Each structure stands twice: as structure tokens, then as C-alpha cells.
Amino acid sequence: MQIFVKTLTGKTITLEVEPSDTIENVKAKIQDKEGIPPDQQRLIFAGKQLEDGRTLSDYNIQKESTSHLVLR
């Protein structure tokens, strides 16, 4: 499924993911596309910070959901 990640600069990154993917996996995909190390990434969805060990389905992130990327 596709999800979108919006950066603070207003850029939207499109990612191909599975509901069973962990947040860690998603951060690795963002690193592949954008070159941002996962330890600098914070992903926010529905006002919550997403934890590495959880999956997209844990957070009820469905296709075409948009989460926000904040850099630390």
C-alpha cells in the first residue's frame, strides 16, 4: 500500500509499505529515499509519535494515510 510522509519543508514522500511493516522499516525506507538517518527521524501520526518496534497496523495507518516527519 502507499502512504505519504510530509516533511517540515512541505515536501511529500510517497512510500510503498505493508501494514505489517514496523516503524523502523518505514524509517529505513525514508533513509533510502531521502538520506536521513533513522535516528534523526521522528514520525508523527494523528498527533502521536510512532515508536520503532510497533507496526503501521498498530497505529491504524491505512493506505494513503499521511504522517509527518520531524527531524531531531
Rank of each mutant, 00 (worst) to 15 (best):
I61D: 01
V17G: 02
N25G: 08
Q31D: 05
T14S: 09
L50K: 00
T22Q: 04
L71T: 07
A46F: 09
V17T: 03
D58L: 03
G35N: 07
S65P: 12
L8V: 12
E51T: 06
T7G: 05
Q31P: 01
T7H: 05
R72T: 14
E34C: 15
M1R: 03
I23N: 00
E24W: 15
I13Y: 05
D39L: 09
L50W: 02
T7L: 14
P37T: 06
E64S: 11
R54F: 12
K33P: 02
D21I: 05
P19N: 05
G35K: 06
I30Q: 00
I44T: 11
H68L: 15
T66H: 15
L56I: 09
L43W: 03
T55H: 05
L69E: 01
K27Y: 04
K11R: 12
D52E: 08
I30D: 00
T22W: 05
L8D: 11
V5C: 03
A28L: 15
P37L: 06
L50Q: 01
I44C: 15
Q62F: 13
V5A: 02
K48C: 10
L56E: 00
P19Y: 07
K27V: 02
K33S: 11
R72I: 15
S67K: 11
S65Q: 08
E16S: 11
D39C: 13
Q31W: 15
A28R: 15
Q40W: 09
R42M: 15
K48I: 14
G53S: 11
Q2T: 14
I61T: 02
T14M: 12
G35V: 02
E24F: 14
T12R: 08
T55V: 06
T12A: 05
D21R: 01
R54A: 07
I44N: 05
D32E: 14
I36E: 02
E51A: 08
I30W: 00
I13F: 10
Q40N: 09
Q40E: 11
I36G: 02
E64C: 11
Q62V: 12
K29I: 06
K27E: 01
T22A: 04
S65E: 08
L56P: 01
L71N: 05
Q49M: 13
N25W: 10
V5P: 00
I30P: 00
L50P: 01
P38V: 15
F4M: 08
F45Q: 03
I23K: 00
F45K: 03
S20V: 05
V26C: 03
K29N: 03
Q62I: 11
K6M: 12
F4L: 09
F45D: 01
K11I: 08
T9K: 11
D32I: 13
H68P: 07
P37W: 05
T14Y: 08
L71F: 06
Q41L: 06
I61A: 02
I36D: 02
Q49L: 14
K29R: 07
L69V: 07
L71P: 07
L15M: 04
P19I: 08
A46K: 14
E34H: 07
D52G: 06
E51D: 09
H68R: 08
R72G: 10
H68V: 14
E51G: 04
T22D: 03
I30Y: 02
V17P: 01
G10E: 03
H68T: 13
R42W: 10
S65H: 08
G47W: 04
G10M: 04
K29E: 02
L56H: 00
Q40H: 12
I13Q: 01
I3N: 00
I13C: 02
E16L: 13
E51M: 11
Y59T: 02
L50G: 02
A46E: 15
K48Y: 09
T7M: 15
V26H: 00
H68Q: 10
R72Y: 15
T55M: 09
Q41E: 01
A46V: 06
F45G: 02
K11E: 07
V5K: 00
I44E: 11
L15C: 02
T9H: 13
H68E: 10
S57F: 09
R54M: 12
L15N: 00
G35S: 05
I61V: 07
V26K: 00
I44D: 05
L43I: 08
P37R: 08
L56C: 01
D32Y: 10
I3K: 00
E16T: 13
L50Y: 01
K48P: 01
T14R: 10
Q31C: 13
P38G: 07
I23F: 02
T12W: 12
P37Q: 06
T66D: 09
I23Q: 01
Q2Y: 13
H68I: 15
N60Q: 08
I36H: 07
T9G: 12
N25K: 14
D32G: 09
T7Y: 12
M1H: 05
G10K: 04
T9S: 13
I36W: 13
G47M: 04
L8C: 15
D39E: 13
Q49K: 10
Q62Y: 12
E64W: 14
M1G: 03
T66L: 10
S67A: 15
Q49A: 11
I61N: 02
E64T: 10
S67N: 10
L69T: 02
F4C: 08
E34A: 11
I36V: 07
E34N: 08
E64L: 12
P37G: 04
I61Y: 03
I13G: 01
Q49N: 12
T7C: 09
I13W: 05
L69P: 02
T66F: 10
L8W: 15
E64A: 10
A46P: 01
G47C: 08
L50V: 04
S67P: 14
E18W: 13
P38S: 13
E18T: 14
T66V: 13
L15S: 00
P19A: 09
P37E: 06
Q2K: 14
T14I: 14
T22K: 08
T55N: 05
P37I: 05
Q41S: 04
L56Y: 01
P37K: 07
A28W: 12
I36Y: 12
S20I: 06
P38K: 15
K11C: 10
L50I: 04
S57C: 05
L69A: 02
P38I: 15
L69R: 02
K29A: 06
I30G: 00
Q40T: 08
Q62A: 10
E34D: 05
E34Q: 07
T55S: 08
E16I: 14
Q2C: 10
Y59I: 04
K27G: 01
H68Y: 15
T14A: 09
L15G: 00
L56T: 01
S20C: 11
G47K: 04
I3D: 00
L8G: 11
Q2F: 13
Y59S: 02
V26F: 03
L69C: 02
K63E: 12
S67W: 15
A46Q: 15
K29C: 04
Q31S: 12
T22N: 04
R54C: 10
E16F: 13
S67M: 15
V26N: 00
I61F: 06
V26A: 02
G10S: 04
M1V: 06
S57W: 09
P38C: 09
Q62W: 10
Q2P: 05
K29L: 10
Q62P: 10
R42T: 15
N25I: 14
A28V: 12
R42K: 11
I61S: 02
Y59V: 03
Q40D: 08
L71C: 06
I3Q: 01
R54L: 10
S57L: 11
R42C: 15
V70C: 11
T9W: 15
K63G: 14
L8K: 10
V26W: 01
E16C: 13
M1W: 13
F4T: 08
T14W: 07
K33H: 09
F4Y: 13
R42H: 11
E51W: 05
K63Y: 10
L43D: 00
D39R: 11
E24I: 11
E34T: 15
